[in-house]
């Protein structure tokens, strides 16, 4: 992981239109190694849209953005196919990303060992979230973009996720997460939309 303190993401004056309406404008943020930025805002304030912008999925209407490091994306939709098992999902993305990660080990960390071979259509919402979070451990990437990571997780799941995020921050990783609840990891900055 990078040891310099140059910003991983630098954005200024971001704005987006949705239809005729300005969803937000003048949003600036800078993410350095070890930072955890939490996005706050009411439903519909544009937290997901801002995250999609930082992921390169949505083009900003105005503003500048430099994305200097590879990122992981965990959106609202987990990206799991109905026929895909958690093991199959992680194996597929390991293949796509050229990762040599130990998949049984990741499944164990995510407490998915028992559900490892259950097709996606039978997984619970929490199990789907845990499968998606497993992707974070497939490859070492400095930036994690997490959209409401606590959604559908039980208490044990939150504790597990907090531990994974804290570990990432300790090794000079950085995250940007949209959240409604208090974070269970050290937050360096909050951005309110």
């Amino acid at each position: 992981m990078t040891t310099s303190t140059a910003p991983l993401i630098q954005a200024s004056g971001l704005a987006i239109l949705r239809g005729e309406r300005v969803l937000f404008r003048g949003v600036s943020l800078s993410l350095s190694p070890g930072d955890a930025i939490v996005l706050r805002g009411a439903n519909g304030a544009g937290k997901t849209t801002l995250l999609r912008m930082l992921a390169g999925l949505t083009r900003p209407e105005a503003g500048e953005m430099v994305r200097a490091a590879p990122h992981h994306w965990i959106g609202h939709k987990e990206g799991i196919k109905p026929q895909e098992t958690p093991r199959g999902h992680l194996a597929l993305w390991a293949q796509a990303w050229g990762s040599k990660a130990d998949i049984p080990d990741i499944l164990e960390k995510m407490a998915l060992t028992r559900a490892a071979d259950v097709p996606g259509r039978y997984l619970s919402a929490g199990q789907r979230r845990r499968t998606a979070f497993g992707r974070l451990l497939l490859e070492d990437r400095p930036v994690w973009l997490l959209d409401e990571p606590y959604t559908a997780l039980d208490a044990a799941g939150r504790t597990m996720l907090d531990a994974v995020i804290s570990g990432h921050l300790r090794t000079n990783g950085a995250i940007i997460a949209s959240m409604h609840d208090a974070a269970g990891f050290p937050v360096t900055n909050e951005v309110t939309l």
Partner: peptide, 15 residues
């Protein structure tokens, strides 16, 4: 369409 619905499209766009 299935990819757009289940979020897989977002992942493929970021590879």
């Amino acid at each position: 369409q299935a990819d757009a619905e289940d979020g897989t499209l977002d992942l493929w766009l970021q590879t």
